[in-house]
Every structure is written in C-alpha cells, then in structure tokens.
C-alpha cells in the first residue's frame, strides 16, 4: 500500500520527467512524508479488535425508538433524501427475518420474527468489500479491525456494495449536502459519487468517546469493546448469552453479535 498519494504521484512523475531522474526527486521531496512519531493522545480508546454486541431483547420496539440511528446520522452528517433509491444509512433497523433471512422459521415467535433488529456494518474479520476494492479505498485497520473508508480515494465503482452480503454500504447517488437537516461541523460530509458506511465512530474513539449509537441507546442494548480483552463487557456478554451473527456461513467473520 502506498504511503501517500503524493508518493504515488512522485513515482509516476519521476518516470515521466525524463532527465530528472526519479530517485533524487523522490528523496528530495519525500522528506516530509517521514513524519515525526505522533503521540497518540492519552484519552484515545484503543483495542485490538473492536466489536459490538446488540442485545435484541433490550432493544425497544414498542415506541419505535430510533435514538441510535438519529444520533449516528446526525453526528456523521448522513443525509435523508426521503426515498429508498437514494438512501444513505449507516445504522438502520429491519425485521429479524430480513436481517437474518437464513434463520427464517415458520414457527418462530412472532415477537422475534417481526422484531426490528439493528443492522450496521459488521466490520468483518474477513471483509469481502476490502478484497474487491480496486483502489484500496476501503481497508481493514490492522490495529483494531475497523473496516474503514477513504472517501478521498473512492472512485465510486460500487463493487464493495455488490460484495457486501449485508447491504451495509451506501452510495452517494447525489450531493448529500442539500439533504442534511443540520450539518455537524465536526465531521465532513461526503461528496456525490463515493461509497460510505459505519466506521465504528473511529473519529470518536480517538477522542476517547464510545460510538455515538452506543452512547445514545437509552435501553443500554448496545455494548462496544475489545474482543481480545477477556475483561471487556462484550466478552462478558457473549460468554453469558446465546448470540448469533449474520450469515456466518459466508466466512466473513462479522464483529457485530446479536443476543436473541
């Protein structure tokens, strides 16, 4: 993976600039690309493998609670076009039979079958979307397992959307700015023509904050933590409750777990 787009360009330009010689060019101008060792801020939340646990039992449905969705979409400047065609969504709710179609069972409790479950990017351990991306615009962070999007590099081919078996990715079919009710200055909007999705609030983690949806859930149905840490809340929950993942048969190893 190229360190920076500039280096990539330098390689290209170095070849093109006959007579200059690529090497000295590269050396002379790559100096700033060897940055000082950054000090991670003390407050940043770090983990080896971030995961989320959704306790569907706790998730409120009677009064159609959408706090997690609203909050997430608000802090991430997710637009609302009001139509399913152009729709962009990071987290959303669907009936259980849609979220888990292969778990379909005629005699399932009505409660569960029609239960709205929270869906989001699974931040798979083995993400097909990352595999197919032709520009490495989406990649898996080695440090903490978050599947990230680089909106600057995405060419909008939507191959990742075809590859994602969970429908977790959205495309900016049109300029999102016009349909964001209140723009949050702390987070950029996207430009039309790129794919986006849940990023496990990477920008919040670095500030020492837990994901916005987890924070917003008044039913405490969401838990977020490090799977590699045996002491973590998520490990605790998973060890104590029966849980499932979406489409485990595909081998993608989702990192979002559902307690049913």
């Amino acid at each position: 993976m190229a360190k920076s787009t500039r280096r990539g360009f330098l390689k290209l330009a170095g070849v093109a600039a006959v007579g200059m010689g690529a090497k000295p060019v590269y050396d002379a101008f790559a100096r700033r690309s060897a940055p000082e060792q950054p000090t991670p801020p003390a407050e940043a939340l770090t983990a080896k493998r971030w995961a989320m646990v959704v306790d569907t039992r706790k998730c409120l449905r009677e009064h159609g609670c959408t706090d997690c969705i609203t909050t997430c979409h608000l802090v991430h400047n997710v637009p609302d076009f009001g139509n399913p065609k152009d729709e962009v969504k990071w987290v959303w709710k669907e009936q259980f039979e849609h979220g888990f179609p292969e778990q379909h069972n005629e005699f399932m409790s009505d409660d569960l079958r029609h239960k709205d479950v929270l869906l989001l990017c699974n931040h798979c351990d083995n993400p097909p979307c990352v595999r197919v991306c032709p520009t490495q615009a989406t990649w898996k962070r080695e440090a903490d397992g978050i599947v990230m999007m680089d909106m600057h590099r995405c060419i909008g081919c939507r191959y990742c959307m075809a590859a994602c078996p969970y429908g977790s990715r959205s495309f900016n079919w049109r300029d999102p700015r016009t349909h964001i009710a209140k723009i949050d200055e702390g987070f950029p909007t996207r430009t039309r023509g790129v794919v986006e999705k849940c990023n496990f609030c990477a920008e919040r983690l670095v500030r020492g904050e837990i994901p916005a949806c987890v924070e917003a859930c008044k039913a405490k149905a969401l838990a977020f933590g490090d799977l590699e840490d045996p002491e973590s809340e998520v490990r605790d929950l998973l060890s104590r409750h029966f849980n499932i993942r979406r489409k485990p048969g595909l081998g993608t190893q989702p990192e979002v777990y559902y307690i049913v």
Partner: peptide, 19 residues
C-alpha cells in the same frame, strides 16, 4: 484527479511530445 495540485494532462503531453 492526479496528485496535489492536480497534474495537467497537457503537461504530460507536452513533455512526451517534446521528448
């Protein structure tokens, strides 16, 4: 959109042509 500032294609063509 190549590089920052963006690479002008005519720059490439000019150098290629001259070369």
């Amino acid at each position: 959109q190549i590089g920052v500032p963006v690479l002008y294609l005519t720059d490439l063509f000019l150098v290629a042509g001259l070369t």
